[in-house]
Simulated assay, not measured.
Amino acid sequence: MANGPKNKKFFWIKLRPDFFADPYIKLLRRMAGGDTYTIIYLKMLIKSAETDGVLYFQGAGLDIAEELSLILDEAVEDVRALLAYLDAKKLISHSAESEDIFLVASADLTGSETDAAQRVRKFRERQKQQKTLQSNVVETKSNDKLEQELEIEQEQDSPLPPKGDGEERADYDNFGEAPIQDLAADMLSYYNLAFSKSFPMTNRSMLTPLVMHGVSYQNFVDVVNYIVQSWSAEIRENILPKSLGNTKKFDKWEDEAKGKGFSNTKPIQAILADRKKQREKIDDINKLAKEQRDNYALIRAEYVKRYGQEKIPTIMETPPADAAAAWRLLFENDVGAWEFLHKKVESRDM
């Protein structure tokens, strides 16, 4: 028996409107060769989209920089310079045991969907367009009643969407059971996380009607985020997977969510990851500030030995907290570094 058509998966990156206004990107572009580095960075983001933000070292080059230069068709010197910048700005992370690198920004910029889900989404868009056109036509009560009866019959007999032309229905016939259940399982996992529930995966069938209705994972995330952040705890407690699986209710809640600005919102996992990064960033700042205070006490004492106590450098006149190279020069008794600090102190009025 011939195998059925493969279910392809498409990946993309989504740039924020302020991507090029980001301080890290602006600083990168101002460097010599910065526009080239920016293009290479975008290529890396695209390449990492299908591997969850990780660029794996396969051993074709001497190191990850040489290998990326081959894959991206860019000069190895440019790739090395970019990686050094991204590493310094904590925009990539890597372990000591591996040459693999993780692009920190990829989680916010990357999306994906299967070709079947893409067909479902397009079908749903066509259905909405048809619904909009129909809403502009005044129908008789008998037609309204007949349409309601047909909708009830379709909901009772099958989770499939209303029949359209042959091509539209064929999209659903080729969708396949596995992708449907996979997406429904992803939705149920997100529901459990957002509502602090523990429904087993056997209950994913409650959300299958949404998948057949053309609801994407992002649509589901937006609606769940809207409910969690906008509704009272008492009402949220009564929202079960079966409630979300009601396509009529879901469409209504989706419209409400969009009206409240809940469109392409971040999943809770990403929000928690952002908060963790922010805490880590604050911890790093506090650590640097402590190091600066400790270093200042040592440099101040040495300064008094060298130049006396008539004028003593303030902490603001010493190098910035993250200027490790400047501090190192002072601790290594570099004459130029000490004279520079002395001139700065002497130029102060008092």
Rank of each mutant, 00 (worst) to 15 (best):
S196Y: 02
L133P: 07
K163H: 08
V104C: 11
V228R: 03
I39F: 10
E346K: 05
T318M: 11
S135L: 09
D144C: 14
S98K: 10
K260V: 08
G61M: 06
F102Q: 09
L82G: 11
L207H: 05
P313F: 01
I92W: 02
T114M: 02
D22R: 00
V137P: 03
P179G: 04
Y172C: 05
G53H: 01
E77S: 13
V304T: 03
V304R: 03
S158A: 01
S263M: 14
K14S: 08
W338F: 01
E291C: 11
E256R: 07
F57E: 05
A297S: 07
A75H: 14
S48R: 07
H94I: 12
F19K: 12
A65R: 02
P241Y: 02
E256H: 01
M187C: 05
D222E: 04
G259Y: 08
K266Q: 10
F19G: 05
I299H: 05
L27A: 13
Q278T: 04
I40R: 05
E149W: 15
L68S: 01
A88K: 08
N192K: 13
S196N: 14
R306E: 04
N7S: 01
D63N: 11
E302L: 12
N238D: 15
K343A: 11
K281E: 06
A326I: 01
K266E: 12
W327G: 00
P162L: 10
L183G: 06
P161T: 12
Q154C: 15
P209Q: 08
Q229F: 14
K197N: 02
E332M: 09
A185M: 04
N136E: 15
I315F: 07
S135D: 10
K344G: 01
A184W: 00
G259C: 06
H94N: 05
F20T: 12
I299S: 03
W338A: 00
E177P: 04
K163L: 00
L210V: 05
E254V: 03
G61C: 08
D144P: 11
D186Q: 15
D73F: 10
F19C: 09
T140V: 02
K242L: 15
A324R: 10
S93H: 14
N333R: 01
D52G: 09
K277Y: 15
T208W: 06
P241V: 05
A323M: 00
S93M: 08
L240N: 14
S243F: 00
G59T: 02
D222N: 12
D35G: 12
F250A: 00
G53A: 08
F19L: 03
A170Y: 14
P17I: 04
I64Q: 03
L183Y: 10
A60K: 15
N286T: 06
K258A: 06
K258G: 09
G166V: 14
F123H: 12
K122F: 09
Q156S: 13
V304A: 08
K249E: 10
S93I: 08
A81M: 06
V345T: 03
F220V: 06
K14C: 07
P5D: 12
R293N: 01
